[in-house]
Design a protein around this nucleic acid. Structure first.
Lengths: 202, 202
DNA sequence: ATCTCCTTGTCACCGGGTGACATGTTCGCC
DNA sequence: GGCGAACATGTCACCCGGTGACAAGGAGAT
């Protein structure tokens, strides 16, 4: 029990943590630039590391994988969204709950893709697309579970999957439309329009 | 212009091609067995190759990647489904066209996952799930394009994405339900139920 | 000034995937 | 039946993303 600023595993040692975050951010920015400029596959991790003045090994101490550079920190967003869903009133229809929660969280869900160039990069790189879909589906599954956990809502798994799948499709379509407009549109409003078009569901 | 049985690039040399297919099938079956038994990540390509009595290099001459062993030949199914969509009557509403075509092609779309064990393997392996979603979305995109190409159907890209996304969700939910029932259900009927639940759309 | 962590680089290694070359095997034709 | 072309296979070296281990240097708090 020697050292000072540390709370159950989490180091809060000010400077140390701050520089770490700074390096991470700089590394990410640099990497994104290279990826957009020369292509994702064509840019080796070693290139990024060298450009930032560190070794390949050190790169992997900041990011668990090359792909993770693109998808920033999405620190367990799924948990928070699921919690938001769970805390909707029990008598609210599932679809309405989804619409309200997703409309509210849309911005943070799409946080990693606020730059059209990056989203384009993702769309045009199979490995990144795959990762994106994977994240999306993971969140979908947690939301489906959350929907069913609401007290009183006797929702079967099939319907929960169906509804969350459609909600994901709505977000997805909104994202694509936003990209088509080169980022020149209000994503929130697009999400609204998507949900509106599906309004009759359930 | 020497050799005989070959038509513009496609070799039809009977035996050669047949043995090739046979080896491929055997290799796939063997690999699937190992994957299900010991896990996908835990099974090295070298193990599979050795079990089949060939070298790692030869394995990659039969399959372009380890993942492709799991997702059999899906020889451009997307093209065929897209064509089917395109050939629906022009005055048929998009959602109806989707329902009919997907109901009809469901079996072939899910061909790679007719064994619950394999589907479970996919679901429990991030790399495979990612690949599955990737394929699914690729097909979705082509179907969306096909929907818009129908003569007379002035369908905007946004709506097309939305509808195809929901259709994909329907297939997906059906697949999951089927898995929940351990493969003991009629997938076609599940797809019907999914579409029925979403019937009010558009 | 010291005693710790923390960070970094280096090196060796793994596993999926590829290119090149050499060796057989098989096919098709004369 | 024998010949040359096409084919399949194995081997070897290599690339790239990713990881474990170890050693050395720098920065933290007291």
């Amino acid at each position: 029990m020697k050292y000072p600023r540390c709370v159950n595993g989490e180091r809060v040692s000010g400077l140390r943590e701050r520089t770490r975050r700074a390096v991470r951010a700089e590394l990410a920015e640099l990497a994104l630039g290279l990826f957009v400029e020369r292509g994702y596959e064509e840019t080796k991790v070693e290139d990024v590391a060298a450009a930032a003045g560190l070794s390949k090994r050190s790169f992997f101490r900041y990011f668990p994988s090359k792909e993770d550079v693109v998808f920033g920190d999405v620190e367990d967003l799924a948990d928070e969204v699921a919690a938001a869903v769970r805390s909707r009133p029990a008598d609210e229809p599932p679809w309405t709950a989804l619409r309200i929660v997703l409309r509210e969280w849309e911005e943070r869900i799409h946080a990693a893709q606020r730059d059209p160039a990056v989203l384009r990069l993702i769309e045009s790189t199979p490995a990144l697309r795959a990762r994106l879909h994977q994240r999306r589906d993971e969140m979908r599954a947690r939301i489906a579970a959350a929907l069913r956990e609401r007290p009183g809502a006797g929702l079967d798994a099939f319907t929960a999957d169906l509804l969350t799948g459609c909600a994901a499709a709505a977000l997805d379509a909104a994202g694509r439309e936003w990209l088509r407009r080169d980022g020149d549109a209000d994503r929130g409003e697009l999400v609204d329009r998507a949900f509106a078009a599906l309004a009759p569901v359930r």
